[in-house]
Design a protein around this nucleic acid. Structure first.
Length: 1096
RNA sequence: GGGCCUGUAGCUCAGUUGGCUAGAGCGCAGUCCUGAUAAGACUGAGGUCCCCCGUUCGAGCCGGGGCAGGCCCA
């Protein structure tokens, strides 16, 4: 067995990984439970294979691996399948960047087929990169069996899903207004829009709309996007706002009352004085007709409708005129309003932002170029009022910085239906599934979040006008406009009337699948697939079907569906993965796709910022692993509260780490990391301690045995704690609470290190090998081996290292790896509540004793004669007669005396127990308390102690209190060196006799020699000869206590030489080859001493 | 505007069904202990438990109303 005192985690992990690889441990782990009756189904949410993995991905992956490992050790058969998310715009964007493309034309010119192949290549590359990074994390998956959402099976299973939706009548073609880059010719998603907002100044314009039937009366409207005026169909007012009727230059304007002052500023030279002649509520304007600014255009004339004033609650007077120009084809809110109020919709521009036919002189012009011509045109038509510079934050394309426009596009949707509607629909199914308490959400608020989304979400827009993605299997007939959905590759082949040969042998992607034509079932015309690709969440949502062979092996699917467990980062997933999983399971089987979902919050950097590639603060996982180690990160993640954002501490830079490595040191981490890893470091210390002495003693645990019943209280206590820890870790993990599990392990390591090992050190370093020593070895060994197994799911590398060194080095019959071991099961017979309580009592008294020493300013090395203790119960007094020795040893006191009740060191106070008295006395309670607290407390305490009852006079009535209602608490009388806590009192006799003083000096001296030994570079077990040169007084002490000093310092021969009053020595001269230190007088109670040690 | 969550020590957070003098870790100051320890122990400084109102003998906790922050949806 070998264990350095300091551990270099990254180095250790590299070694363990190499060993795993050499011994094919992963494979044996994957097949360990092949024959098991029990199965546990985990489904991996696919990670985007578009970039290397950052440390923020490792949080969730730690959870995934942790529960798989835990359940493997518990004997559950599993699939261990990892997944990669492959299709979508984010991949296209990266490939476009790589190729230097700027827009869709570049892609078309390059060739869609070649471009799609590039996307595939990129995905395969980064799946490979992330696989290696995940292995570095210690994540154990069947890496040869990862699923890819771009696979044929995944895509065709979605086709089946879409066909089912279509058969139910839930697929439809709809329209939506979305942000659009006229240069790139593509829609911009909500995620993308957030990256491109910029502050800009536009020339806004005030326009007057002439009211029909009210001569010279106008609505005054305002817009920052003049190019949308030709698409105007309505004007919106807030019915709750007050509007003013203003007279100016012989005309009448309507606008929000709040804006009137602004009008005076605006009027400029062209307009005269404005006068408010009346006010009226917005509701009165509703339904008024007006003449639109571009009614002369054919596009408007084709609508066969009129412009009118409509109501919109969102209209405010904060900007503009309180009357909003509505162009439903050019604005999201406008479009929403149009649907509500059944307004006409004009879509004036094409995908390049150019006016389409029907807009007369505008047709063929770019939106970016029309502001000035439109102002001129309005002036000519006498509709122009004024322009105004307006600064605001406006969305831009995050790739090419072009200002976005809002544009009506045709998209495909899955209808969600309404909860109020009659009959069946997806929304009803989804809500029912998520409301079912059989589904567990951790943290619990997740369910409400998801339900909120499900109740309020719009229909699911599944189409995107791009290239790399699911080919939506929707075929539209050019003649009769009927559409149908093809549900599988077989169906496509059967229906194909053209292009099949061209497609055969390709993946179902653009452009190859586009070649296939079918015959319209309704009219017999040849129909083509729509060019759109699918929303990538379809790809991820189908996974519980596609990867479980839903189409071809229903028995297998039934075996693994639904998932027992999924875990992902909460933010976003409510409307992404969780949502798509739910929709697909609801549509296909009307059932839940998973039983338990664990969500975690966001990993943030040391400054509280989210990790983001574009911010430049992303930390590649393997870089961090090389410095802090994978186990350290895993421990940080496992110990974190999943519902709270987790701060990732700063890691040393490459150069800092390299500097230390150059001198053979592991990278030094900051306090935050040290704190996060404290339990692991502490465990390593204990382990290193054990190995040190086991080596010295040549201790072999396989050849020794000693029944637990024959071991000491201390041993049985720590074994009891160990069993309880096992129960707690298991209880935590079974309920998907890793924090609880990690916390239990940390707490145990703390107890093991700070009490068990601290109290047991002497048992290990004493020279004779008796039953007590064997007991100590066996007990500590048991603790360490069990900890290795408990830690295996959390920190697989460290656990393996401990296990190999502790177990495999002595027992070749044991499982070859800790990850092939069974999960340790607690032996409840070893749990002793009595020992737990007794040890807690000892610890309490020790702490009180240390505090008392602090108060008396007497260091622990100075022995004292008597410690007085006051405890509560007879049982506690009895315990102390057995365990008092531990208290005395720890506190360096000779004798323990229990204080009698009547001791004059104590005084008593009466503590009312509110939760008993409160319900009993209610409103009378304040008076009862007053009566209790008045008068002689000591006498009352005595009465209660003697008679078991305490009568009180409360407003002439007798109220009797009993011991379970009032607690008698002892505290120390003033003037004693005593400390107390909740009625436990510890007092010290601070008299230091000359004998005690000498003994204290001897201990100081011993400690000094130990320090010298250490600095001399001696090994722990080296025996030495020691020379001391000092004054007569200390020399005398050293001679008196020589046996003690020799024993403690492994000194065989101790030579003490006293200086006489003149500083002259006697005879003995220390050898020149020894190691000598002069210890100044200040360090040893005023005695200077020269210490020499020499290895024998 | 709607939903969910959060507000307690300098920082990060606990705080059980309402009950005595509100806790922990880190950090800070001091003392101690240590041949396992980059460890540990003790003491100290540090709080309007976001604010207001209510219920109650009693509110950090329950109810109402605000304020501030986060996430999501409009």
């Amino acid at each position: 067995m070998v264990a350095p005192t300091r551990v270099d985690y990254p180095q250790l992990e590299e070694g363990v990984q190499r060993w795993w690889d050499e011994h094919d441990i992963l494979n044996r782990y994957l097949h360990r439970n092949d024959g098991s009756e029990k199965r546990w189904s985990f489904i991996d949410g696919p990670m985007t294979a578009n970039n290397p993995m950052g440390v923020h991905h490792a949080w969730g992956r730690t959870y995934k691996d942790l529960w798989q490992r835990f359940n493997t050790m518990r004997g559950y058969r599993q699939r261990y399948q990892n997944g990669w998310d492959c299709q979508g715009l984010h991949v296209e964007v990266e490939v476009e960047k790589d190729l230097g493309f700027r827009n869709k034309h570049d892609i078309e010119a390059y060739g869609v087929g070649a471009f799609v192949e590039k996307c595939k290549e990129r995905v395969l590359h980064f799946a490979d990169v992330a696989t290696h990074q995940s292995i570095r994390l210690g994540e154990w998956m069947d890496w040869s069996d990862s699923y890819y959402t771009m696979s044929n099976e995944n895509n065709y299973t979605i086709w089946g899903f879409l066909k089912k939706c279509w058969q139910e009548g839930w697929i439809y073609k709809g329209h939506d207004v979305m942000p659009w880059c006229p240069r790139c010719g593509t829609g911009i998603s909500d995620m993308e829009i957030n990256e491109g907002r910029k502050k800009v100044t536009h020339t806004s314009v005030y326009v007057r709309f002439p009211l029909v039937g009210r001569l010279h009366e106008y609505l005054l409207v305002w817009t920052t996007t003049p190019w949308t005026l030709p698409a105007n169909v309505a004007a919106a007012v807030n019915p709750a706002l007050t509007y003013a009727k203003v007279e100016q230059d012989g005309n009448v304007y309507y606008l929000s009352s709040d804006v009137v002052p602004k009008l005076k500023k605006l009027r400029g030279r062209e307009h005269g004085e404005a006068k408010v002649v009346a006010t009226l509520p917005g509701s009165e304007l509703l339904g008024w007709r007006y003449t639109g600014p571009y009614d002369e255009l054919p596009a408007w004339n084709n609508t066969h409708t009129e412009h009118r004033v409509v109501a919109w609650d969102e209209v405010s007077a904060a900007e503009g005129t309180g009357i909003v120009h509505i162009a439903p084809g050019c604005g999201r809110e406008d479009y929403g309003l149009a649907k509500e109020d059944d307004l006409a919709i004009l879509a004036p521009v094409d995908e390049n932002g150019v006016y389409v036919d029907g807009y007369d002189w505008l047709t063929g012009m770019q939106v970016a170029d029309v502001a000035r011509p439109i102002f001129d045109d309005l002036k000519e038509k006498r509709l122009f009022y004024q322009t105004e510079s307006y600064e605001h934050v406006y969305p831009h394309c995050w790739r090419c910085k072009t200002e976005l426009i809002f544009r009506l596009v045709e998209e495909w949707f899955i209808a969600m239906g309404s909860l109020d509607a009659p009959g069946d629909n997806p929304r009803k199914r989804l809500v029912r599934i998520v409301e079912d308490p059989a589904m567990t959400w951790i943290p619990g608020f997740g369910r409400e979040r998801e339900l909120d989304w499900l109740r309020n979400m719009e229909d699911w827009m599944i189409s995107k006008k791009r290239y790399w993605g699911l080919a939506l299997p929707i075929f539209v007939c050019p003649k009769c406009d009927a559409f149908e959905v093809i549900g599988s590759e077989d169906e496509l082949r059967e229906r194909a009337v053209a292009g099949w040969e061209e497609f055969a042998g390709h993946t179902p992607h653009r452009p190859w699948v586009d070649a296939v034509k079918i015959r319209c079932a309704a009219c017999g015309e040849v129909a083509s697939r729509i060019p759109d690709v699918g929303n990538p969440w379809l790809d991820a949502g189908i996974v519980p079907f596609s990867t479980l062979h839903y189409r071809h092996n229903r028995a297998y699917w039934r075996d693994w569906f639904p998932a027992d467990f999924i875990t992902e980062s909460f933010p976003g997933q409510f409307r992404n993965w969780f949502y798509s999983l739910l929709v697909m399971a609801a549509v296909l089987e009307d059932t839940a796709p998973f039983k338990t979902v664990l969500g975690h919050a966001t990993l943030i950097d040391e400054f509280g910022e989210e990790f983001h590639k574009s911010k430049g603060n992303s930390i590649p996982f393997d870089e961090a692993a090389a410095v802090v180690g994978a186990d350290t990160m895993r421990w940080l993640y496992a110990g974190a509260a999943p519902e709270q954002n987790l701060r990732f501490p700063r890691i040393p830079t490459e150069s800092e780490a390299a500097e230390l490595r150059a001198v053979g040191q592991p990278p030094r981490l900051n306090e935050k990391w040290m704190e996060a890893r404290a339990a692991l470091d502490k465990l390593w210390n204990v382990y290193s301690f054990f190995v040190t002495y086991a080596n010295i003693d040549d201790f072999d645990p396989t050849t020794r045995a000693l029944p637990v019943s024959e071991r000491t209280d201390l041993d049985r206590w720590v074994l009891s704690e160990l069993q309880e820890t096992m129960l707690m870790v298991e209880a935590g993990l079974v309920t998907f609470n890793a924090q609880r599990g990690a916390g239990a392990i940390s707490a145990f390591v703390e107890n093991l290190s700070n009490w068990y090992v601290r109290r047991s050190r002497r048992r290990f370093w004493k020279s004779e090998e008796d039953a007590d020593k064997v007991a100590a070895y066996l007990t500590l060994y048991e603790c360490l081996v069990t900890l290795a197994k408990l830690l295996a799911p959390f920190t697989p590398f460290l656990a393996e290292s401990l296990y190999q060194n502790l177990v495999r080095s002595v027992d070749m019959a044991a499982p070859e790896s800790v990850h092939l071991c069974d999960w340790p099961v607690a032996d409840s017979a070893l749990i002793s509540p009595q020992l737990r309580d007794e040890t807690a009592l000892v610890l309490r008294l020790v702490n009180l004793g240390r505090a008392a020493r602090e108060k008396a300013q007497i260091r622990v090395r100075q022995p004292l004669a008597v410690l007085y203790a006051r405890v509560h119960t007879d049982a506690e007094r009895e315990s102390l007669t057995r365990l008092g020795e531990q208290v005395l040893e720890e506190l360096n006191v000779k004798r323990l005396e229990l204080l009698p009740l009547e001791s004059d060191m104590l005084r008593y106070t009466l503590q009312p127990r509110m939760h008993v008295l409160g319900p009993k006395h209610g409103k009378l309670l304040p008076k009862v308390l007053a009566a209790l607290r008045s008068g002689d407390m000591q006498a009352k305490a005595r009465t209660l102690a003697d008679t078991g009852r305490l009568p009180l006079d409360v407003e002439g009535q007798e109220v009797v209190l009993t011991p379970d209602e009032v607690e008698v608490e002892a505290s120390a009388q003033e003037g004693y060196t005593a400390t107390e806590e909740r009625g436990y009192v510890v007092a010290l006799d601070t008299t230091i006799t000359p004998a005690l003083l000498a003994e204290g000096l001897a201990r100081d001296l011993t400690r000094l020699v130990q320090d010298v030994r250490k600095r001399a570079g001696l090994a722990v077990e080296d025996t030495i000869d020691t020379w001391l040169l000092t004054d007569a007084e200390l020399a005398e002490v050293a001679r008196t206590h020589s046996a003690y000093i020799k024993d403690e310092t492994l000194t065989r021969e101790l030579t003490v030489t006293a200086l006489d009053a003149n500083g002259q020595t006697g005879v003995s001269v220390p050898p020149a080859e020894g190691y000598t230190e002069v210890v100044p007088a200040a360090k040893l109670g005023g005695h200077e001493v020269v210490v020499t040690v020499r290895k024998r």
